[in-house]
């Protein structure tokens, strides 16, 4: 876990590789090519790159139209605008007709940092998760992001892949085999399950080490595909440990925490603590300061785990 790379860096790299493999891949951007790294694709395949300017809604609908002519579209922009501003285009023109548009915006969550609340989406997983047929993927690191972006080309229908701005530790390497819909157990434990997604996977792993020193054996599962949820893996872990901590850089309303709670309350009810943003907007600051402020550190996960194991 020494190398640090932002998941957004995977976007441009994966797109260039996809561009060589698929002649029908088209990339659309909304004036953020450098930030999202789609500029890499633009340089390699200028004829298949379309910058829509600052018009995210139009970008999504144009992508839908392109998809009807057998193109596989990937869209850029920031998560706030791709899922928020253009929500209805994603819902009505892309998802309802089940078109092959892969929505991979960057700068999700509070780790956007200094730009502040207007640019920090903590609702995007919720927004995308409620759309019927949408695949929702939140990669934990650069390598998983790259594999997921490439895998999306073969997924029929729309896919949302949540990418971040900040450099985060790598957990996997190039040999990692990403399978959409599969949650991966990274640490085995009997006392508590830590289900984490995105950048919180690293915090979950760190927490499991802290907990181990205190005699608590935590199971850490990377739930990178939030929809469709790997119900089997999650239920099996809940059955084993009987206690679940869910960690995500997202509102505690509507994200992975909600998805897990929805599943377990029906299939195997156990106590759950959601580590996430507690129904608040973001604010300006350094990513590390913000994670601490909003209670998204390994210590916050450990605290939740201790609380559950003390029950």
């Amino acid at each position: 876990m020494s190398e640090k790379r932002a998941t957004r860096e995977a976007y441009g790299e994966a797109l260039v590789e996809l561009g060589h493999e698929y002649p029908n891949i088209v990339v659309l951007e909304a004036d953020l090519a450098k930030s999202t790294t789609t500029v890499k694709f633009k340089k390699e395949f200028p004829e298949r790159f379309f910058d829509c300017g600052v018009a995210e809604q139009n970008m999504m609908a144009i992508a839908a139209g392109l998809a009807t002519t057998s193109k596989i579209c990937y869209t850029g922009s920031f998560a706030m605008f791709a899922t928020g501003r253009a929500f209805e285009q994603v819902r009505n023109t892309i998802s309802y007709p089940k078109l092959n548009v892969n929505i991979c915006p960057t700068h999700a969550g509070i780790t956007v940092g200094a730009d502040g609340a207007s640019h920090q989406t903590v609702e995007d997983i919720a927004l995308m998760r409620v759309i019927p047929g949408m695949t929702v993927i939140v990669p934990a690191d650069f390598y998983e992001a790259k594999k997921a972006i490439k895998a999306a080309a073969e997924i029929d229908g729309p896919v949302f892949i949540r990418l971040g701005r900040a450099a985060v530790s790598t957990i996997f390497d190039d040999s990692y085999n990403f399978v959409p819909g599969r949650a991966i157990r990274l640490r085995e434990g009997q006392n508590v399950s830590i289900l984490a997604t995105g950048i919180m996977v690293e915090a979950g792993l760190k927490s499991s080490e802290e907990l181990a020193r205190q005699g608590i054996k935590a199971e850490v599962i990377n739930v990178s595909t939030i929809k469709p949820l790997d119900e089997k893996t999650i239920i099996a872990s809940a059955e084993k440990t009987g206690k679940v901590v869910v960690a995500e850089e997202h509102s505690v309303i509507g994200g992975l925490g909600s998805a897990v709670a929805e599943l377990l309350c029906e299939k195997h009810p156990v106590p759950i603590i959601k580590v996430g943003i507690k129904d608040q907007f973001g604010r300006s600051g350094e990513p590390a300061e913000l994670l601490k402020y909003y209670g998204l550190t390994s210590e916050d996960i450990s605290q939740a785990a201790r609380k559950l194991t003390a029950l």
Binding site: A61, A64, G65, T69, T93
Partner: peptide, 29 residues
């Protein structure tokens, strides 16, 4: 997805026009 001959689902205003632009672009590509 339901009606033969319908090129794209529409109903939410403004969006069909934008998808038509995307179609024209795709056909030219």
């Amino acid at each position: 997805r339901k009606t033969p001959g319908v090129e794209i689902s529409t109903g939410s205003l403004g969006m069909g026009f934008s998808t038509a632009v995307g179609m024209a672009l795709g056909l030219r590509l």
